[in-house]
Amino acid sequence: MALDNKIDNHDKRSIQDMIAKKKNGKNITSITEKVMPAILFLIAAVSILTTIGIVYTLLTETIEFFKRVPIMDFFTGTVLKPLSQNPEFGVLPLINGTIISSIIAMLVAGPIGIMTAVFLSEYASERVRRTLKPMLEILAGIPTIVYGFFAFTFVTPLIREFFPSVEATNILSPGLVMGVMIIPMIASLSEDAMTSVPNAMREGALALGSTKLEVTFRVVIPAALSGIIASFVLGISRAIGETMIVTIASGSSKNFTFDITQSMQTMTAYIVEVSGGEAPAGSTIYYSLYAVAMTLFVFTLIMNLLARYVSRKFREEY
């Protein structure tokens, strides 16, 4: 009774009232209770809208582009001259530049990344690992524009010191720097895959008299292979999508060549160049932007799906 009175005095209402009110569902609490899930749903839908937005804008403008330039000319053309009197829109020089810069990057990041992963997961003591890993992560946190500056003002002059025939803008230097940028990504993903190999397997091999090296190459790496391959594929995807380093250090020559000492343009760098001004909306050059972006988007999407497929399909379960 005392309790009842207290609530009564405090709130000027009885518990029955409160219950009735709650049942009516007219107070603020129950309204928020109904509205919040809907609001949260709408918020969550933004990420889907983003995807739809990307696909829709790329697709509609790309279709417009292919009305003006035949699709076969685009994908098989080896000449890209968007600004000339008789413009030609062959995407192969860009795809070539993208692939070559990614190959150079992976030649650096692949071996060094995997060796770093092996060292951190198999050889380093816990203390060494805990000091080195955050330091490597700094490397991943540096903005790409800074790497671009580094490639253009330091690495390229350095290369030209030894090989004067290399051009001032070339695909080699941004490729190498991009490789350094991707090392932490490959190292950390591969290391995760390696550390998840159970210790019992290592101990079994060690007990049979293997050295650590043999354990690494015959037991750990085969067992972690799916994760390592996935990290490579993600690294490639990252290299394909990288923009600022190649834009700054590789120039804008649309060469279709395999000579890495020359300037080449990647798909990303082309987008930067064209959107950077000269293209009035509605012109063919403007639409070519979307066609190239669509190609880039499909490339990276395939790589990302492939990475997920590899790591799921070929995972060794222990």
Binding site: S47, I48, T51, T57, G241, S275, L296, F297, R308
Partner: peptide
């Protein structure tokens, strides 16, 4: 799981493609 996959895919889209989205939708 659809939303989740979608977010994972968005994380892998190159930043420049977002730029094109922004230019088309927000700027123009």
């Amino acid at each position: 799981s659809f939303v989740q996959t979608n977010i994972a895919n968005l994380a892998g889209v190159p930043s420049i493609v977002y730029g094109i989205l922004g230019m088309t939708i927000f700027v123009r």
